[in-house]
């Protein structure tokens, strides 16, 4: 390649393997899991049904975090409304009381803030869990990899995986049906 890249020190990040169909990558993922790889992933243009089970991943725990976020929203709304309407600035209008029994009038805002807080919790905790934004990643240097957002299915294996072997992994990926395999390096 060009001279400048040779000057830089590189280390192996891992392999990417390209597959043509959802069915073939699904079978390959099962084989990957069976062989015992741990630091690997299946990159696809759309979520493949049943892939979580094939990779041995459990259900997402995002919902539990969002439940807490929603609860925070409800509490915030109730504190805000009781604090201002009963404590700080009672407005005696519309024939409604200014004590605990005002609560039916507070439902709409409580409901809206529950949804609002949950939605923000989904957005931000999702980004934290899936480690985004991360604008640069060694995979983006690969020529095969960008096919994942079009019509290809990619399996990536990291060199950090205990079962990773420079030759053995390449052969394994080819044996489970990869059309092409590429070595990915990252700059130090």
């Amino acid at each position: 390649m060009s001279v400048s890249t040779e000057d830089k020190v590189k280390r192996t990040w891992g392999y990417v393997a390209e597959f043509d169909t959802a069915a073939s990558v699904y079978e390959a993922a099962k084989a990957m899991k069976e062989y015992g790889y741990r630091r690997w992933d299946v990159h696809s243009p759309f979520p493949i049904h049943g892939m979580d089970a094939a990779m041995g991943l459990g259900p997402s725990y995002l919902s539990r975090i969002v439940f807490c976020g929603g609860l925070m929203g409800s509490l915030t709304a109730l504190v805000l409304q009781f604090g201002t309407q009963v404590g700080l600035y009672p407005t005696i209008v519309q024939g409604k009381p200014d004590n605990l029994f005002t609560i039916p009038a507070f439902f709409p805002v409580t409901f809206e803030l529950t949804i609002l807080f949950s939605a923000f919790t989904i957005l931000f905790s999702l980004l934290v869990i899936i480690r985004l934004p991360r604008l640069h990643h060694p995979l983006f240097e690969s020529k095969l990899f960008t096919g994942f957002s079009d019509d290809k299915f990619i399996i990536s294996v990291e060199a950090r995986d205990p079962k990773f072997a420079r030759e053995g992994t390449r052969e394994f990926l080819q044996s489970i049906g990869a059309k092409q395999v590429e070595l990915v390096e990252e700059e130090l």
Binding site: A29, D41, V42, H43, S44, P45, P47, I48, M51, D52, M55, L57, P59, S60, L62, S63, V66, G70, I115, S118, A119, I122, L123, L126, L127, I129, I130, L132, P133, R134, L135, H136, H137, L139, F140, F148, S149, S156
Partner: peptide, 23 residues
Amino acid sequence: LGWRGGNRQWRHYEMGYLLLAAL
């Protein structure tokens, strides 16, 4: 945001999308 379409991302993404739909 540097989306890489990995299934380890998709599974949380799908859950997030489902929760947003439910809300």
